[in-house]
Design a protein around this nucleic acid. Structure first.
Length: 455
DNA sequence: GCATGATCATGC
DNA sequence: GCATGATCATGC
């Protein structure tokens, strides 16, 4: 029996609203809350709505056509954000490949969501949490257009026997995230003998953050890159961006400034130029699509020989927190990298030594390379736990955190403002703030392999 | 010439 | 004041 007393969306929502403010410990009648992940949603289904939890293909309330999801959010100094991605149903590669978006298991189950938001507080038991907001949610058409394209991207990989190459960053809002007892849970796929990681449809945490900020906390929406979403019926979002930039390829930075009437000496000049090319008034990274999809614009200067001078940094990490991480898939770095997409704005050096706009290119880290970053993360955690060896050198203070030579993909390097921009190591000593970086050689290789797509 | 350590400029 | 993205400087 699946929530049969609740036959309409309104009835389902009304019951949810009655739960607002009641500690989850009081709602829980079966001790379900003590179980692991997903316990909050299951507790409410079981003890509040009075039906057996199911992981079937139907929505939780079949007659009302609503799927119930509980989701945690965090409230920090910088505002509200989703604690994690919203995980939907597992992708059955064997069955999903011959469906359309309309007949897909995702759409069948999740076209209408009842989102129950609770605030997560570190160190507070779940029994003390309360549901604070209930929202009946349907995807707005401008988002649904992108989600439909995302679904096609995911299923396209299954159809070409590449389910084992799926990764969370392949798509914009709807992603295929790993799901299983461990990340090593594998499933069959229809067009390849290789087993693929078990994955589930999910809405990226970045998407959930904007959903919260917009529909729960009433923040204004940001500027959109795509002004008329109907353009996305025929054209993928990434293609839309690439085509907007195409007329400007071959121009130097100075020529672009002239053509676009951007008179600025700002260090983020290239981002300003990119915004003008896309017809965006503010910053690219601040647009609704870029925020929802966790897209980072990055300028890359490629030298004549195809090499790239600079590696690409991530935000500085907190060594104490990092040393306490234990599961790669739950680490801060994984959350920053796995779902992310990058928009590389590639400037190519010409024979005369000028740099001209060559192309823009979306990129996300392939699954195998993400695993390699995981190994660098692992070595970093181990080194921090053991105690970093600091050695004075003629050029500053050396350390034994993972170096570029140790991995083809990533390394650890200082990332401070100056010699006084330090942080504490687990043992209390101070060190210049450090970051993970993607190797310049790795970025160059990725651009060579995937380049030309956007031309 | 590159890897490594260091630092700059801007915006929030 | 600091995070962020971008870039510099030089010993090997």
């Amino acid at each position: 029996m699946n929530g049969t007393s609740y036959r309409t969306k309104e009835a389902v929502l009304k019951r949810a609203q009655e739960a607002i403010g009641i500690p989850l410990g009081e709602i829980d009648k079966t001790g379900r809350l003590r179980t692991g992940k997903g316990a909050v949603g299951t507790t409410i289904e079981e003890s509040w709505y009075g039906y057996a939890p199911n992981s079937e293909s139907e929505p939780d309330f079949p007659e009302a056509g609503v799927e119930l999801k509980a989701a945690a959010y965090l409230q920090g100094r910088t505002g509200v954000r989703a604690k994690e991605r919203l995980v939907c149903n597992i992708i059955n590669y064997m069955e999903e490949h011959d469906k359309t978006f309309e007949t897909s298991s995702f759409w069948h189950k999740c076209h209408d969501l009842l989102l129950l938001f609770y605030r997560h507080l570190d160190g507070v038991p779940k029994t003390a949490f309360t549901i604070e907001k209930a929202l009946l949610f349907q995807f707005p058409p401008e988002d649904l257009a992108v989600i439909r394209q995302d679904w096609e991207t995911i299923i396209g990989k299954v159809r070409t026997g590449q389910a084992h190459l799926l990764s969370e960053g392949d798509t914009f809002y709807l992603a295929a995230c790993t799901k299983g007892a461990s990340a090593k849970t594998l499933r069959e796929q229809p067009f390849s003998p290789l087993k693929a990681k078990q994955r589930a449809y999910s809405l990226k945490a970045s998407y959930m953050t904007r959903l919260l900020q917009t529909y729960i906390f009433g923040e204004a929406q940001s500027e959109r890159v795509v002004k008329d979403w109907r353009d996305l019926r025929q054209k993928r979002f990434d293609r839309y961006v690439v085509e907007k930039i195409a007329p400007y390829t071959g121009m130097t930075q100075a020529q672009l400034q002239e053509a676009l009437q951007v008179h600025s000496t700002a260090k983020n000049l290239n981002e300003l130029l990119l915004a003008k090319m896309l017809g965006v008034r503010g910053r690219i990274a601040a647009t609704e699509e870029f925020r929802r999809a966790q897209i980072f614009p990055r300028t890359v200067r490629v030298r004549r020989d195809g090499s790239i001078r600079e590696s690409m940094p991530f935000p500085a990490f907190d060594p104490v927190r990092l040393s306490q991480e234990s599961i790669w898939e739950q680490s801060v770095l994984y959350e920053q990298l796995a779902p992310a997409r990058f928009l590389f704005v590639v400037f190519q050096e010409t024979d005369s030594g000028d740099y001209v706009l060559d192309r823009v290119q979306f990129w996300n880290i392939p699954e195998a390379d993400l695993a390699e970053v995981g190994r660098v993360w692992e070595r970093t955690v181990q080194t921090l736990k053991r105690g970093v060896r600091l050695t004075p050198t003629p050029r500053g203070v050396g350390n034994d955190l993972p170096k570029q030579a140790e991995s083809p993909v990533a390394h650890v390097r200082p990332h401070g403002r100056d010699g006084r921009d330090t942080c504490s190591l687990p043992d209390g000593r101070q060190i210049i703030k450090q970051s993970f970086w993607l190797n310049n050689t790795y970025i160059a290789q990725q651009l060579r392999q995937t380049g030309g797509l956007a031309r």
